[in-house]
Amino acid sequence: MREIVIKTENLSKRFGTFTAVNEINFEVYKGEIFGFLGANGAGKTTAMRMLCGLSTPSSGSATIAGFDIFRDTDKIKKNIGYMSQKFSLYENLTVLENIHFFGGIYGLSNQQLKEKSEVLVNKLGLYQEVNKLVSSLPLGWKQKLSFSVAILHEPKIVFLDEPTGGVDPVTRRQFWDLIYEASDSGMTIFVTTHYMDEAEYCNRICIMVDGSISALDSAPNLKLKFKANSMDEVFYALARGAKRGE
């Protein structure tokens, strides 16, 4: 039996009378790349924000890395990394300063910071840019840097909210190489996306429609089940019935 790192039970979020996320249940295994798909407004980001402790669930329960989502938020935060839809490194700090700042507040020692930033800079090929302000980097590099910073403290799980939005295909490919690498080291990746080709890269895919989960399986199984040739067709088949987002 594989180790479960995320488990939700009837997890819901309501804003007034609007139910953004409606009683979702799923499990994510250690080391897995778990894709979270859905149209705009389907509730992906809200669900992810709840799992990261940015938003308090209205009802239901969930455990992240073995910790309860209501009681142990601080312990959860030590064990997760997060990369939001918006670029969220400090634009007016340099590459190195960002790495040191985020590493530092996760409690890395000076020695660790030094080593890790060297490894990271080498891996991303950012030697020339180390002391440049982050605002001067092209978007693709920013996203790769942002991901690398999010996993700097070696979290058990990393949450990526549409990490490759607006990035060119080559950089997207490189970005996914980084994801695979992290996954190989045993890290669990929880990623939301709009790109169906990216969905195929995931071990399992969960498709949300109108706040509920309407399908959860691996890409080949989903295609088989919906008698579709591509994930695009699977997604259309499911999302066509959506009432929201019009």
Binding site: C52, Y82, L89
Partner: peptide, 13 residues
């Protein structure tokens, strides 16, 4: 506004 506060809020700060 910039969104960096989200990044801070997911840390154990």
């Amino acid at each position: 506004e910039v969104g960096t506060i989200e990044q801070i809020n997911v840390t154990p700060i």
